[in-house]
Amino acid sequence: MGAGTTPRSAGDDEQVVRELRAERETFVCEGQFGDALQRILERHLTNLDGSRQDSVWVSGFFGSGKSHLLKMLAHLWANTQFEDGATRRGLVPRGLPSGVEAALRELDGRAKRTGISAVAAAGSLLGGNVDHVRQTVLSVLLGACGWPTQYLEVEVAVHRERLLSTAVQEIVSRIRLPHGEAKQRRKLALHTNTDPDGGDGDAVRVWLRDEWSCSWKEVLGEARGRGMEDRVLQGGGGELHGDDLQARIETGAEASLARLSPRFPDGDHRAWGVALKRARDGSDAPLVVVGWDQSVADHPVAREVLGAMSD
């Protein structure tokens, strides 16, 4: 459930219970309202045997009853009792449409067969952190189950981060990153901390962030703030495209190599070992094998070496 209020139970204060009971006793489940409830319930039941459960988007103008629809659905779903034994469904004055009633009976039957009670978790995102939507949804769900939200959030976060880090590290370990024509092997280093900077030398650093511990807005702002000269993130905040996560990491790593070693193309060639041997043997043109037939001293690599020796 994406809106409304969390379903109330026996432990609530008397005023809340009176208000809730009054809502149930005046609830009219007809027309489009009833049709919407039936569609949502039937969609959920259809997908119960599948590997995933589709979401339902409820839209409408301001004041059209979106929140009320979801709130009523939450109470019908759980069908908890009041202290006098009356149930949420039983208090609907004109009864429920046959399609809604049938869907709810099937939901009860599924819950009974599996031994898992039906739980309706409803709440407003405005009651949590709008930049950390997943944490807010998790808090609503844990609270509806009667579990302490703060303690379990920490446990879930630690376990989740461990699983995520392990999965991405496995992907990173499969990537081979040969650099240029020389096929110089480069390493990738995975970072999961809040600061991407680290002492990995010339390794291409993969900075793993998730939308549980930080918002997408924060990650995007960090990427844009570091700009196109950054050596860790794909600067500018541009999204990398590819068939899967590994392909995207490879694309970003290859682009990062150009920033890590901007002068690498000046000396990129597989035959430098041969050139070095020819120079040691006294060849007059040792760099021909790397595609250079001009003066040795004018080659960018040789010029750097000679400059370093003179210093």
Results as ranks from 00 to 15, higher is better:
T5C: 12
T6L: 14
E14D: 13
V16K: 14
V17H: 01
D35R: 08
Q53A: 13
Q53R: 15
Q53Y: 10
D54C: 14
S55P: 06
S55K: 12
F62N: 14
G63F: 03
S64Q: 05
S67H: 06
K71N: 15
R94W: 05
R94Q: 09
E101M: 09
K112D: 15
R113Q: 14
A118H: 04
A122C: 02
A122Q: 00
G123A: 05
D131L: 11
H132P: 07
L142T: 07
G143A: 09
G146Y: 00
G146A: 01
V158K: 11
H159V: 11
A167Y: 03
I175D: 00
P178Q: 02
P178W: 00
Q184L: 14
K187Y: 07
K187I: 06
R205C: 10
E211L: 14
G221W: 08
L233C: 10
G235N: 03
E239M: 13
D243T: 14
D244F: 01
Q246D: 10
Q246C: 11
L260T: 04
R263K: 12
A271R: 08
A271Y: 07
V274F: 10
A275N: 07
R278H: 10
A279R: 09
G291D: 00
G291I: 00
A297P: 05
D298M: 05
H299C: 00
H299A: 00
P300R: 01
